[in-house]
Amino acid sequence: MSRFTDLLLALTLCAAGGAGAQADRYPGIGRAATPAEIRAWDIDVRPDFKGLPAGSGSVAKGQVIWDEKCASCHGTFGESNEVFSPLVGGTTAEDIKSGRVKALQEPMARTTLMKVSSISTLWDYINRAMPWNAPKTLAVDEVYAVLAYLLNLGDIVPADFVLSEKTMQQVQDRLPNRNGKVKYDGLWSIRGSADVRNVACMKDCKLESGLASALPDFARGTHGNLADQQRLIGPARGVDTAKAPVSAAKPVSRSMSELATKNNCSACHQLDKKLVGPSYKDIAARYKADDTAESKLVDKVKKGGGGVWGPIPMPPNALKDEDIRALVHWILAGAPE
């Protein structure tokens, strides 16, 4: 063997061993990937079609595969919303001309064909991940055929179309939303800057809404019983959503007794004991059958009164009207706790 071939052999071995300046730092770790291994795993297809294998498939052939392997999840026409979001729908001939799907400006559900801006993406995804329960089992020509059929369902290619590595660009030029994407650097680059700014106001900050949104009562149980989703000890317990919202009853009564305390009612009145004045329960009992009791008592609380319960009169009370009405209503209901 000549010294030249020795050298060649050494160089070849060196390359095969994955050796390089850096590899030498960690001897014995890692090995060269073989060409066959790379072919087996390097299946990605980019928007510039790098990685796209040669092959072809017709719409007609695609329909056969579709009905057998795809329709059960995606629907016969790619319209199904049962298992996954619909693939087909929402695009128009006008969109194919402009490359922008107009319906995306409307508040409506989005289909795959409304969103997709690069045809390579669909080829790559069907090839690597479909069918759902048997990914990577379609042959290259079958991937072309299924995609051809899907495009035909979306009126992007005619029924006699044959999709191949040579016709992919034609399809790309007709994709309804091919111009509908912007690469947004603000949330991509390490140096990207924010598009939304707040300032850290600390005191008397301006608010723009009241209570803008809250869960409606009927949605309480949608996530199961929340009492079963919180720790059994600690500062709080889970809300028992199997029961009706407490907002209607308990918080009102609780705030009422506090409202009564706050406004010094409780200096003279208690729930069930006569103090200076009658108890709330006694008041409720006396006026039980009196339809005009509420307005009568509102007036009494406001202006003061006497003579009904004994010699000590009630002074006028300077409460807000709605508070007086709420308190009287609560007292006549028996002042529920």
Partner: peptide, 22 residues
């Protein structure tokens, strides 16, 4: 690479009907 989760999902729809990608 423009993968499925860069072109069809994980894209942010803006009010003008365009999607922010990446």
């Amino acid at each position: 690479w423009g993968t499925k989760d860069e072109v069809i999902h994980y894209i942010d729809l803006m009010p003008d009907g365009r999607h922010r990608q990446y």
